[in-house]
């Protein structure tokens, strides 16, 4: 079985930041491997260790800069990586799920994985829709928000649990090939070993542009435009206690006694 894991480099934001126009100023931004993708990678690696997967390939849409994040993913076990980038994408707004899925679909068509394990969402824009859109685009089955995957695929079926709201899980059998969007907590993602980090530097990382994938750059346009960005308004008038820890703890203790706590 071959597994494809879409890996996203997410933008992280410092606690204190400023907005300039429709973006947070660069100096407050960082980059990291998407948290949900860590769980998707771990699940794939565990399937490989169990002898159920032969090859794990990651795919990332992003410029040169994200190669460090891709190596970080490879250090955890995947065999090789594909990075898709094109000058035509530099100006496109990647908020458009349809656009991202179109690119990933071309990679799925080329790689023909049996299983695609993506994160439920990316931690920055949190659309949570790419996995299912991709599945529909390539004609795969799917399941969204998976927090357990049985490690056997009898009858070419994946038995999963989907995490519904309110502490309820849905048990579902999904025919392969399929896209599963992986929820945090499904496993315990490993830290990369020093050996893994060294090996990751030598693993194949293939760069493809849109022409390589047979996608016409002219027809590629984001349907969504980011118009405004603002800090949300506070819903309550919060009372912030000032002072050192002993002083603020005393203020809170007074409040709690007033509320009848521990009386």
């Amino acid at each position: 079985m071959k597994i494809l894991v879409p890996v996203t480099e997410v933008t992280t934001v410092e606690d204190e930041f400023e907005i300039e126009g429709t973006a947070i100023a660069d100096r407050y931004l960082g980059a990291d491997l998407n948290e949900w993708d860590e769980y998707a990678i771990e699940e794939a690696v565990q399937l490989q260790e169990a002898g159920l997967a032969d090859e794990i390939v990651t795919v990332t849409i992003g410029p040169d800069d994200c190669e460090q994040t891709i190596r970080q993913a490879l250090a955890k076990g995947p065999d090789r990586a594909i990075r898709v980038w094109d000058d035509a994408l530099a100006d496109a707004d990647l908020l458009d799920v349809g656009l991202k899925s179109q690119i990933l679909a071309a990679v799925v068509d080329a790689e023909e994985p049996d299983l695609v394990l993506s994160g439920v969402q990316s931690g920055d824009d949190s659309f949570g829709a790419t996995g299912v859109t991709l599945a529909d685009a390539v004609g795969y089955e799917w399941a969204a928000v998976v927090n357990h995957l049985a490690h056997d695929f009898d009858d070419d079926t994946a038995s999963v649990r989907r995490e519904l709201e309110g502490g309820v899980e849905e048990l579902t059998d999904v025919e392969l090939p399929a896209v599963l969007t992986i929820q945090t907590g499904i496993n315990e993602p490993r830290y990369a070993s020093l050996r893994g980090i060294r090996q990751a530097q030598r693993k194949p990382l293939e760069v493809q542009d849109l022409a390589d994938l047979g996608i016409d750059a002219d027809g590629l346009e984001s349907a969504l435009t980011l118009e405004e960005m603002a800090e949300p308004e506070s819903e309550t008038d919060v009372t912030v206690w000032e002072g050192d820890a002993d002083e603020t703890a005393a203020e809170l203790a007074d409040l709690l006694r007033e509320k009848g706590v521990a009386q």
Binding site: T133, R162, L224
Partner: peptide, 20 residues
Amino acid sequence: VNGLDYAPAVASRLDVPIVT
């Protein structure tokens, strides 16, 4: 969780954008 399990497929088949 269920909305996110079919709304993206609806958008894909209608060939319209989705905003979540």
